[in-house]
């Protein structure tokens, strides 16, 4: 534990000293969207191992994504506009899923603001929107491992007035039950559109296991 903490504190002090933004994640040339669904990647990208801590006290890693569809959104709890808007739309959408589909779908909110968010504080935050939502975070380095693989970005900085600045990708990422980055649903997000897009994506995958 001591090494990541040290690394994190190191990054933190650099950030605070410079007051500059740190950019993480290289958005690769967006994989070609498939013909029949603009949100879907032409070739789903298998995710390699990553390790975050979830709001229920268990690790969040590849294993936890296996066998379920995952809708994942990057943000932070001090975000007043886009994050609560998206999470409440996702909660509305979750409420419209049939019990069978809901059973093999998980919703994960990954905070890219480890300066202020902890797995514990995220638990209360995500459950406010839906008791089934999972929150997760990790060190800047740990977060970057996942963020990069999902062609996403985040940056952390400090304003001249000392206020924390957090910028992040706003798409909802879809990961399939084989733990492949499968689709990217772009903002703005509305429950009805999210539902239609998600159901359409599932239909394009014959043989999706429904436990």
């Amino acid at each position: 534990m001591s090494k990541p903490i040290k690394l994190f504190l190191g990054s933190l002090s650099v950030l605070l000293l410079l007051g500059a933004a740190l950019y993480l994640g290289e958005p690769e040339a967006d994989a070609q969207a498939s013909d029949n669904n603009p949100a879907k990647l032409a070739t789903p990208k298998p995710l390699s191992e990553f390790q975050l801590m979830a709001s229920d006290g268990r690790p969040l890693n590849r294993d936890r994504l296996k066998g379920k569809w995952t809708l994942l959104f990057f943000g932070y709890t001090h975000c007043p506009d886009v994050c609560p808007t998206t999470l409440s739309e996702l909660a509305t959408m979750a409420g419209q899923l049939t019990p069978e589909i809901h059973k093999d779908t998980q919703f994960i909110f990954v905070s890219v603001d480890p300066r202020r968010d902890t797995p514990q504080s995220l638990a209360e935050y995500v459950q406010y929107f839906d008791p089934r939502f999972i929150g997760a975070t990790g060190s800047i380095e740990e977060l970057a491992v996942l963020v990069r693989q999902l062609d996403s970005k985040f940056s952390l900085g400090t304003s001249p007035l000392g206020e924390a600045i957090v910028n992040h990708s706003s798409a909802v990422m879809v990961i399939d039950p084989q733990v492949r980055y499968y689709a990217r649903l772009s903002a703005p997000h509305y429950a009805e559109d999210l539902l239609q897009q998600y159901l359409a994506l599932r239909q394009h995958t014959p043989g999706t296991p429904i436990p």
Partner: peptide
């Protein structure tokens, strides 16, 4: 809230000019 460089950012606005017969909407996103 603005999308810049592939990321959502918040930009502080110091004043809002409302021209004749104009309307301005403050809305999510």
């Amino acid at each position: 809230t603005e999308e810049r460089d592939g990321m959502t950012q918040m930009i502080k606005v110091s004043q809002v000019i409302l021209g004749p017969k104009d309307s301005v909407r403050f809305q999510p996103g």
